[in-house]
């Protein structure tokens, strides 16, 4: 049974993957219809996997609340807030003026932006400790970061009238060249990985190597 199940799994991945590639070159209404249906199915499976993930998180925190007294209250806060937010959305709607949106605007969004802004302190601390021009490459990195940073604040313009155009040139010429090369590399790498998935060589999504 496990062998049959694995063969079925690889066949599903190969068939759907091959169809998605071929349909790109087929100009027919039926092919477009199947393509859209598959995209819808993917979204539904993704949504189901998200619900599974939510259940798994809640289950883990429930067992943590039961077995670890020192973590109990934190896990309960997580469970209660997740259930309360879901209840607000499902029972009272998520439209303008709803309690769900109030919780998002006044609790979730400010906390999220605060968490991201915390990184400003750690970046400053890491830059202070790590930014040393020990080699030619690190000196180039330091210089590029310094010019772009200084040119984007009023201090840069007061130091030199060319600061802004120098920063623009760095971003639009050498940095863009490296970015393009990396995008090409990433694109080719993703295509190679996708081909391995379709051919059944890459099977890590099945939970083992």
């Amino acid at each position: 049974m496990p062998a049959l199940r694995d063969r079925l799994t690889v066949s599903v991945a190969a068939a759907t993957g091959a169809f998605m590639v071929v349909q790109y070159f087929v100009n027919a209404a039926w092919s477009d219809g199947v393509y859209r249906t598959l995209l819808d199915w993917m979204q539904i499976i993704f949504a189901a996997s998200l619900v599974v993930g939510v259940i798994s998180v809640l289950r883990n925190h429930l067992s943590r609340a039961i077995s670890k007294p020192q973590e109990r209250w934190y896990s309960l806060i997580l469970i209660v807030s997740a259930l309360a937010m879901s209840l607000l959305g499902f029972a009272f709607g998520a439209g303008r003026g709803s309690s769900f949106l109030w919780a998002f605007d006044h609790l979730q969004a400010p906390m999220q932006s605060t968490v991201f802004s915390l990184l400003a302190f750690y970046i400053a601390s890491a830059a202070f400790r790590g930014f040393r021009a020990r080699s030619g490459e690190s000196a180039i990195l330091l210089a590029a970061a310094f010019i772009v940073l200084v040119a984007r604040v009023p201090l840069g313009e007061s130091l030199s009238g060319h600061a802004s155009s120098a920063a623009d040139w760095i971003v639009n010429v050498p940095a863009l060249a490296a970015k393009r090369a990396m995008l090409i590399g990433i694109g080719l790498g993703m295509v190679a990985t996708a081909l391995k998935v379709i051919a059944g060589v890459e099977r890590t999504y099945m939970g083992r190597r």
Binding site: V57, I77, L78, S81, A82, L83, M85, A94, F104
Partner: peptide, 15 residues
């Protein structure tokens, strides 16, 4: 923990 819980509920409702 409050942020994680709210984010879970938010993404669940939107999904």
């Amino acid at each position: 923990h409050l942020l994680v819980g709210l984010s879970i509920g938010y993404s669940l409702v939107l999904t």
